[in-house]
Design a protein around this nucleic acid. Sequence first.
DNA 1: GTGGTCTAGACCACT
DNA 2: GTGGTCTAGACCACA
Lengths: 134, 134, 134, 134
Amino acid sequence: MVSINKNSSKPYYEQLMLSIKEDILQGILQPGDRLPSVRELASQLMMNPNTISKTYKLLEGEQVLITVKGKGTYVKALTDVQRDEYKVGKLKARFNDLVIEAGHLLVTKAEIIDWITESEINLGGLENENSSIE
Amino acid sequence: MVSINKNSSKPYYEQLMLSIKEDILQGILQPGDRLPSVRELASQLMMNPNTISKTYKLLEGEQVLITVKGKGTYVKALTDVQRDEYKVGKLKARFNDLVIEAGHLLVTKAEIIDWITESEINLGGLENENSSIE
Amino acid sequence: MVSINKNSSKPYYEQLMLSIKEDILQGILQPGDRLPSVRELASQLMMNPNTISKTYKLLEGEQVLITVKGKGTYVKALTDVQRDEYKVGKLKARFNDLVIEAGHLLVTKAEIIDWITESEINLGGLENENSSIE
Amino acid sequence: MVSINKNSSKPYYEQLMLSIKEDILQGILQPGDRLPSVRELASQLMMNPNTISKTYKLLEGEQVLITVKGKGTYVKALTDVQRDEYKVGKLKARFNDLVIEAGHLLVTKAEIIDWITESEINLGGLENENSSIE
DNA sequence: GTGGTCTAGACCACT
DNA sequence: GTGGTCTAGACCACA
């Protein structure tokens, strides 16, 4: 399901990270699922394996994935993670920045809230389907 | 009112742009107001004048400021600009990306909507000050 | 009739030049008419006399005005001037540049031609109302 | 195809912008095409890379190009941008100013319309190449 | 290799 | 005094 747009101005590794995170939130990737190997995904997406590797490493750092040496990379259960208030603060600041941008594009708060409400991303509805990994 | 954080990974000029846009939305900067001169702000913030100049120039490109050679840089009225649906679409996508990030930090949609609602940014409340800056 | 917009990003002297040229084409200023003195116009428009002086000098250089020492500055008859093909070439190039800009704003040639046709500027309809100046 | 005239009073970056825009309208540069790298073009034109970079950046701001870090700069499809009436208004004013200039060079409207009609720039003939560059 | 950011400093145009 | 253009060169991020 993971895919990237080679014509986007967003870096490949960022697109990949978001794409994987999105698949997890949408349930396409379930906790415990094994991701394709670095080489496999690299050849699938016609990308440099270094880029895939970087992506997996970063997602490990964010507690989204977990790599077991010699076995592969797996999706971690979201509930295993405890909320990192520092990062939440950063996120809030980024939302605030976007709201500023919105103001100068004549977009109202109501509209933004609509976008978020209608978004296909499903937050808070994630049951603990505890993974057997780790 | 404008300030920047030299330890942020965000480029100075982006921080400045946001800071100025925020001040405008909050009414701290009113249409027609003159911004500090490039050299003045540069010495205030201990930065190179080129960086300030770049910021002003970019905001001019976004129809936020207007610059008059030999005189200075001024805040433009927001209201005579019309909504750019292309940019709005981009903005929406950025909101969507942030919502995905939020999901992995265990932040719910309700919480995000709260952040936006409570934000001090005032959208849609920009009256036409009719300053006719061109 | 001459006026300038202090909030425009165009330099004052350019605005003035255009404004005077426009008044001449529209017949508001007739060949032989005396323009206000530099000081007079400067105080009228609340501008630096140097700027007015510069404007008059430049318009003299373009054969639009003529200054008689001790008497004042007068509008020259357009027909006294012979067409300067070098400048016409430059002008054509500037039109071409604008057409390029137009293309990237999704403006068609038909639309541009409409603008020009409908413009209040009246070209070619200037009879020789020979001035007695010079 | 891009070239600049170092003796013109027009800034290099403006000349470059126009030259690139012209090439796009004439189909010499097609949507999706890669432009020379900043350093490459800089050495070709014997200019500082910063100046090229500025040009590309500005054209990106105008939705003409798109730039992907580490890869290069590409021509964007014109068609998915929507017309910006604010800028169109400004353009119209610039045409009007040129018509005034024309009057004082004894150029008639008919002549101007001829120039525009005969111009090699092809407006409105841009088919959607559907290159989906974002 | 690609582009992006920032500094430093020169020179020009406009008020 | 104001901003604008250009060069030169350092350092960083992405593929």
